[in-house]
Simulated scan of single mutants.
Amino acid sequence: MITIKNVNKQFNTKRGTITALHQINLDIRAGEIFGVIGYSGAGKSTLLRLLNGLELPNTGIIHVADQEISSAKEASLRKARQEIGMIFQHFNLLWSRTVRDNIAFPLEIAGVKKAERQARVDELIKLVGLEGRADAYPAELSGGQKQRVGIARALANRPKVLLCDEATSALDPETTDAILNLLVDINKRLGITIVLITHEMQVIRKICHRVAVMENGEIVELGDVLQVFKHPQQTITKTFVQQMTETDDTKETASHLLEKYPNGKIVKLTFIGDMTAQPLMTDFIRSHSLTINILHGSINQTQEGAYGTLFLHIEGTEDEMEAALQYLQTRQIGVEVVTAHD
């Protein structure tokens, strides 16, 4: 559905040439929800602008929905963009138009007849859950309702790809969950490919099938979300995962316990899939003569299954602790000995 080959993008500024993207290679499958995560300046927004032709690469080739975007001229680019919907962080609605008229706007530009426009708008209002608000103006809507209008507008021309530019970062947590659930529902109902950029791992965890981690204009890690959560390779990826699985209280408790029990170990356990529902800790405690304190635990759902983490402090002889860690590893549990300052 989306292919990016050897793409580089530089910008010329008064301070010199800035490399925004370096040797980007990526294949995004039809029908998947693909996440791109990185901090500010990582290059993710530039990548998204290349996908809809708002920017052109200096080198490399980009195909989106069977159209080459990287070298398209104005007429062919306009046609290609009809296959690509876009939703924005700050909604970008027309404030003088009602909900109905905002959604209809891209259909008007495409020359769709009025009766067909009205039928399509009614269909989209129902799809995004805005029944009863068709004649409201953006100023009368909540943030979540505004984003629902933006999503409906992006879907108006029946695109094959939906690009989401930090689509939930301006919303509160409850509204964010509602919008993410809506995107998952749209993906399943319509089979549309969704590319979502964000700086929040919670968003990636909740709805994405695969994720690319970006840093300094490069893709530094790529994989299925569940596997990236379980085995993050790069420092930046580990930081994103830790933001979800560790809390300040956990770290403070770990520091306190290591001071009190200097011979003990802080252990991070990770579980995926059906392992999260097994009584493994009961078996572990019964089969080992250790002092065990549970510091923090959580189970998160991803599109591909559950991912759980559990932080323990264990104390015993070195041989007993080593045997306990080997016992856990033989049961397909991820085991990592951490320190209080990690």
Rank of each mutant, 00 (worst) to 15 (best):
T270K: 02
T309S: 13
T291L: 12
R81Q: 09
Q301M: 12
H341S: 04
Y307I: 06
T317F: 06
S71M: 12
E322Q: 12
M275A: 13
T59H: 08
S287L: 11
K44H: 09
I28Y: 02
L182F: 06
L94I: 13
L26R: 05
G144A: 12
I294M: 15
K113R: 08
S70A: 13
Y137R: 02
I236L: 06
V7W: 05
D185V: 09
K188A: 10
Y307M: 14
V161P: 08
G31I: 06
E252D: 04
E166Y: 04
T175W: 11
K79G: 08
R210T: 12
L222S: 11
K238L: 08
D177P: 00
F271K: 04
G273C: 06
T46K: 11
A30Q: 11
P232G: 11
K5Q: 15
K260G: 02
P159S: 05
K14N: 11
M86I: 13
A134K: 07
S71N: 15
V225W: 00
I84M: 04
N12W: 00
N216G: 10
N181P: 05
L94P: 08
L107N: 06
A80C: 15
L127V: 13
V112G: 05
K265R: 12
I219Q: 03
I103K: 06
A170V: 01
D177T: 07
D122C: 00
H22S: 08
Q202L: 02
I109M: 14
I69K: 08
L127M: 10
V211G: 03
A30L: 04
V203S: 01
G31S: 09
I294R: 15
N263P: 09
L124F: 01
V338H: 01
Q243S: 15
E131A: 10
S289K: 09
I333N: 03
A80T: 15
Q227A: 15
A306E: 07
A139K: 07
D165E: 11
K238C: 07
G191H: 15
F11H: 04
